[in-house]
């Protein structure tokens, strides 16, 4: 199994003075998989990926990337990793092309193949027409895109993105998320840290929820939701005999609870989508005229709240 994994981090621990920043984190990412590390600021995300990328020495634990161990003394093995740090890691007095050329050469790229790859990356990140401008003249979003482009340049096996959308305008943010989706579809393994629940839900095949240096839970969104017992919610706006309609809805097998409030009926169920036709039929038969219906699935925010007792942005 481990031979198939792009990343296998086991038992990572790191302490800074009295602060146990990371306490036994396990992360595994398969080929073509996008893995999200979701947690609030200070949860231990950046410390974890710093150890995974070989920037920071772990107090204990091990990291294997593409079958090779990674630590602070690794050199060649690090070529399998593309790191996009949270802070912009570009030189403002160099142009986009010069930044890419410098980092490309550090990864051993040179000559026509480097020039060709730089041209490809500039196209991917949408900066081909600004390639020779100094990056200090770029907008925040353009700098972010270049920051990602440098991480992609050497076509790594594992791309690590540390909160790449922090401080980015909505348009650039969407462009960044689309880029990550494209990379994932192209088969690149991605480790993505964020404290934005929407990003994790949109991008990640699997998510680990991390808080206070500990992974609280890990799995697909559905697995996490089921893990904490959160139910889907069917919100029905209707007129007529709502109490009778509520009782009819509650009688459907699989419905956990049904309540009436202000011209609407709230139905809680494990798999709302599959129960929806029957619930609506019973409500209509119960004497209510339905005017609108919405199915609300529990999100990772709710899962996080359930697991940690606090909101993601706390």
């Amino acid at each position: 199994m481990s031979g198939e994994l792009v990343l296998e981090a086991t038992g990572l621990r790191k302490r800074f003075g009295d602060n146990q920043a990371v306490n036994g984190v396990d992360i595994s990412v398969g080929p073509g998989e996008t893995f999200g590390l979701l947690g609030p600021n200070g949860a231990g995300k950046t410390t974890s990926i710093s150890m995974i990328a070989g920037l920071l020495a772990a107090d204990s634990g091990s990291v294997m990337v593409a079958g090779r161990p990674i630590n602070t003394r690794s050199t060649d093995a690090k070529a399998a990793i593309g790191l996009v740090p949270q802070d912009l890691a570009i030189y403002p007095d160099l142009s986009a092309r010069e930044n890419l050329t410098f980092f490309g050469r550090l990864y051993g790229m040179k000559g026509p193949s480097l020039a060709k790859r730089i041209a490809e990356v500039l196209e991917v990140i949408g900066l081909a027409d600004r390639a020779n401008d100094r990056t200090k003249e770029f907008s925040g979003g353009m700098k972010r895109r270049l920051n990602i482009g440098i991480g992609l340049l050497h076509q790594p096996t594992l791309l690590i993105l540390d909160e790449p959308t922090v401080g980015v305008d909505p348009q650039s943010r969407n462009a960044i998320l689309e880029s990550v989706e494209q990379l994932s579809r192209a088969g690149m393994a991605v480790l993505y840290t964020t404290h934005y629940m929407e990003e994790a839900e949109r991008l990640c095949d699997r998510v680990a929820i991390i808080d206070q240096g500990v992974v609280k839970a890990e799995g697909t969104r559905r697995q996490l939701v089921e893990l904490v017992g959160e139910a889907d919610r069917i919100h029905i706006t209707a007129t007529g005999d709502l109490q009778a309609a509520r009782a009819a809805a509650a009688s459907v097998s699989g419905v956990l609870e049904a309540t009436v409030a202000d011209h609407s009926i709230e139905v809680m169920a494990g798999m709302a989508s599959s129960l929806l036709p029957e619930v609506l039929a019973r409500v209509a038969a119960g004497g209510a005229a339905i005017t609108s219906v919405a199915v609300i699935e529990p999100n990772l925010e709710a899962v996080f709240l359930h697991l940690t007792g606090k909101a993601l942005r706390d």
Partner: peptide, 15 residues
């Protein structure tokens, strides 16, 4: 300070 040190340290070169 400008954030490029992590990228240098992440490159396949010795410290």
């Amino acid at each position: 300070q400008q954030g490029t040190l992590p990228r240098l340290l992440a490159a396949p070169i010795s410290r």
